[in-house]
Design a protein around this nucleic acid. Sequence first.
RNA 1: GGCGGCAUAGCCAAGUGGUAAGGCAGAGCUCUGCAAAAGCUCCAUUCCCCAGUUCGAAUCUGGGUGCCGCCUCCA
Length: 486
Amino acid sequence: MERVAIKVYNTMTRQKEEFIPQDGRRIGIYVCGVTPYSHTHLGHARPSIVWDVVKKFLRSQGYDTYHVQNFTDVDDKIIARANEAGMSALELAKEFIAEHLACMDALGVERADVYPKVSEHIPEIIALVERLIDNGHAYAADGNVFFDVSSFAEYGKLSNQKRDELLEGTRFDPDPAKRSPEDFALWKKAKPGEPAWDSPWGPGRPGWHIECSAMSHKYLGCEFDFHGGGSDLIFPHHENEIAQSEAATGKTLARYWVHNGMLNLQDAKMSKSLGNIVNVQDLVARYPKELIRYYILSTHYRSELEYYEGKLDEMSRGWKRMNQAVFSLRSLLRDAELREEVSGEDDAVLSRIRQIRGCIVAALADDFNTAQAIGLLFDLVREVNAYSGRSEAPSRIVLEAAHGVFQEYGRTILGIIPDEPEAEESSLVEPLLDLILNIRQDLRAGKNFALADKIRDSLQELGIVVEDTPRGPRWKIEGVSSDADL
RNA sequence: GGCGGCAUAGCCAAGUGGUAAGGCAGAGCUCUGCAAAAGCUCCAUUCCCCAGUUCGAAUCUGGGUGCCGCCUCCA
């Protein structure tokens, strides 16, 4: 199939580059996942939704994707929380992992191919640490192992920092066992009451960054295409990953570094430590997943994104208009008398639809510009609304072309347009409603508007919205589930 | 102190050299028994400020100002 050229902003080079996959077709993606010590918040939803769209877009371009997303389930905060709650650290992590996955499912985020956990990769981590010691890039000290930053000349290349300037504004007291303050822990000596594993350096557990190096090597090899995560991970997490991985293998860890912007709440970054958190669980219960995705994807992934109470309600007005257009299209395609051929005017509209489609592909190929793609979808909304409004008998070909674009990009790739509701119960509901509405039409023809309005109001109370159009009445079911909430 | 990013209408937001997408809100109109939905028109001579490069700059360069992120756990 024909592929468009895809451009990606690479944090490493600080510019957009043409994306060329390592193996031609199969694309390896490693996205840094969460440390499951607390509830999943909206800030976590952003990279998940962004990468969900990226994967689906890449596949629509004929690529295969292999997506790895880790859970850092061994960590100081998890241990602290677990002690407070009187449960084991791994048990606590397991609960929040389950919640996280459930939240992502509820947001329509496709699952990763693998979700490796630190606790299940201790041997791989130990092997990597040993290798770094053998290479002279790490040293053991008092039951700990530290990475020797001075041994890696390229340290700082991702975050563009110079080693001697790194420590000037720093606010922590370095561990006295370190040779140099900027060295970081690969293996931490066990403290009483902490989960620990045996190692050549005594009982302990992995340091923060090493798990991602070990697990990405295992599942994607020592060099792969995309490495992603929030921009707050650039330093030190990703910088340290690069140091460990590249010092160990001599290969370039990732070819493209892709970082999403932060989600802000009242001008401050949403983060667990600040406590200004919007739970995804709560949000998903209140709003349709397609609306949440629409909100997140309306801003380019690298920009900061603001959230405040009521934001989604504001966003919902435009979103509903788009869905209304798709809804009209679907109901038109279902029953109206449509022309099966195309005429002169149809041709013009058809070529406009194709043009918009091409622009959407180009927007997504340009550093995954979902905001622009959504803008183009609105152009299509106006185009198709105008067409079906002015045309006596619209052409099926034209309507299907427009609907196809909404389906492929709005629904499948961006996930901002709900699925067509399953017509399961409609076997009975549909003829019944047709019957009622036919009678109502007779009443309207006989100018018995009082009774006609009563029928409409009563149906409304049942959650069925009736709209009279020049082409007769149409109906939709509202509020049955979040999916159907147009 | 170091590194990085951002500043576009009342609000949200695209746009990296060719004369300001899109959405919301607002105004007017059309359609309409009513309601709903929809369409059309209008709504930034101008992109934080100053200087420069250029035939031409929101876009490039230099200098300001303001905000944000990272340098400590963080998506």
